[in-house]
Simulated assay, not measured.
Amino acid sequence: MGSERNQERRTETFSELNQFRDAIIQSANVWINTLDEEGNVTLWNRAAEEISGYPAADVVGDDNIWARLYPDDEYRREILCYVGEILQGEKAVEAFETTITTRDGSERIISWNSHAIVNAEDELQGSVAVGRDVTERRERERQLRRQNERLNEFSNIVSHDLRNPLTIAQGYLELARTECDSDHLEDVDIALTRIDQIVNQTLALARHGRTIDKKESTDLAQLAEHCWETVDTARGKLEVDDLPRTNADPRALCHLFENLFRNTIEHGGDDVSVRVGSCEDGFYVEDDGVGLSADLAEEIFEPVASGGGETAGLGLAIVKRIVEAHGWQIRATESTSGGARFEIVGIDPTE
C-alpha cells in the first residue's frame, strides 16, 4: 500500500514539474520550438506564435510550416539541410541566423541556437531551437554602417577638397612675404592658420563620431600631464591628483585632454589654474576661470559655427564624441573655485 502511495506522489510530482516546465516555456520572451526525429513540430511557444504570426494549433504536428516561413525553395532547402545535420547529431550546438516571412508577409531576422535531443541510450529524439528576433538590432547596425560610410566620405572631402587649396594659399603667402612687407600678410597668416585648425577639428569630430581604436590599460594621470605639455598653456598651471587607470583608447583620450585644456586657456585666461582629479565613478577637469552659466552647461557640447576671430565650437563637441565612444558620460558644472568643471563618469577602473 505504501509503495502505491509513493508511486502516486512521484506521479503527481512529475506532473507538477511538467506543468512548471511548460509554464516557463510558454512565458519565455524567446521563440522556442521542438521537432521530432522526422522534423515535425512538437512544441511551439507563445513567443513563436507572436513573432511568426502562426498559432501553435496550426503548426504542431505539421512540417508544412517551413514552406510558409521560407517561401523561397532554394533558401528553404538550404536551411532544412542544415537543420537535418543537427537532427542527425552531425552538429552539436549551433548558432545561426535566418530571415523568415511571417504570416502577414513581413520579414524578420531570427538568431537561432539549436541542438539535438537524445535519450538516456544516446538515441536521437529530435531537436530544440531557441530563437531571438534581432531584426531591429540588425537594422540599427546597418544604419550605423551607412552613417560611418557617410562620415568617411565627409572626412575625405574635408581632407582633400579643403587641404589642397589651403596648402596652395599658404605657399603663395610665403612667396608674398619674400616680395613685399605688409601687415595684411600677418592677418592672412592668422586666417589660414585658423582654417587649418577648423579642418583638423572637423576631421577629429567626424572620426570620433564613428569609433575608437583598440583599448588598452591607460594611466590617466600620466596622460593628462603629457597632454598639458603639448598644448600652448601660456602661464597656466596644472595640478594632477591620483587618477585611476582604465581601459581606453589613449590616442583618443589625448584629444580629449588637449581639447579640455585648450578650452580652459581660451575661456579662463593665460594664468588659469587647472586641476585634474578623481570623482565618483570617474574623473574631472576643472579650472578657476570665469565658469559656466546654467543655460550654457546644456548646450556647450553642441558643435557651433565660428564667428569672427573666435574659436569654432568644435573642441568640446569632440570631447563629448570621445566620451560617448568609450561608453562614458560627461557633464559640465561649476568648480569649487567658481570656474568650469567637466566630469567624465561611468569609467571602469583597472589595475
Rank of each mutant, 00 (worst) to 15 (best):
M1W: 09
R5T: 14
E8R: 11
R9E: 10
E12T: 09
L17M: 14
L17E: 13
I25M: 12
Q26T: 05
S27R: 09
T34R: 08
D36C: 04
N40Q: 09
V41K: 04
R46M: 13
I51G: 03
I51W: 00
S52A: 08
S52T: 12
G53E: 08
Y54F: 15
A56Y: 13
V60L: 06
N64Q: 14
E74M: 03
Y75G: 00
R76W: 00
Y82A: 00
I86C: 01
Q88F: 08
G89H: 05
E94F: 02
E94C: 01
E94N: 01
T98Y: 00
I100L: 14
R103E: 07
D104H: 01
G105D: 01
I110A: 03
N113D: 01
S114D: 06
N119P: 04
L124A: 14
Q125C: 11
Q125A: 10
G126Y: 08
V130M: 05
T135I: 00
R137H: 09
R138C: 04
E139V: 08
R140I: 09
Q147R: 14
E149S: 12
L151G: 02
N156P: 00
H160A: 07
L162T: 05
N164G: 01
P165T: 03
Q170C: 10
C180A: 09
L185W: 02
E186T: 07
D189A: 15
A191N: 05
A191C: 00
I195G: 02
L203C: 04
A204M: 01
H208N: 03
H208C: 03
R210P: 01
D213T: 12
Q222N: 15
L223A: 14
H226Y: 14
V231T: 08
V231K: 05
D232Q: 10
L238D: 07
E239Q: 11
E239T: 15
L243Y: 10
P244N: 08
R245T: 12
R245W: 15
D249T: 13
D249G: 12
R251H: 14
H255P: 03
N259W: 11
L260Q: 08
F261S: 06
R262T: 02
N263M: 07
I265P: 02
E266P: 00
E266G: 04
G268H: 05
S273P: 09
S273F: 11
V274T: 13
S278R: 09
S278P: 05
G282T: 13
G289Q: 13
G291E: 08
D295R: 05
L296A: 11
L296I: 11
A297G: 00
E299I: 06
E299F: 07
E299P: 01
F301Q: 00
F301D: 00
G307T: 07
G308W: 03
T311V: 11
T311L: 12
G315R: 03
I318S: 02
V319Q: 04
A325N: 11
A325G: 14
H326M: 13
H326P: 13
G327T: 15
W328I: 10
I330Q: 06
I330N: 06
I330Y: 07
A332W: 04
T333F: 03
S335F: 10
G338K: 12
G338E: 15
G338R: 15
G338L: 11
A340M: 09
R341N: 08
R341K: 15
E343W: 05
G346I: 14
D348T: 15
P349Y: 12
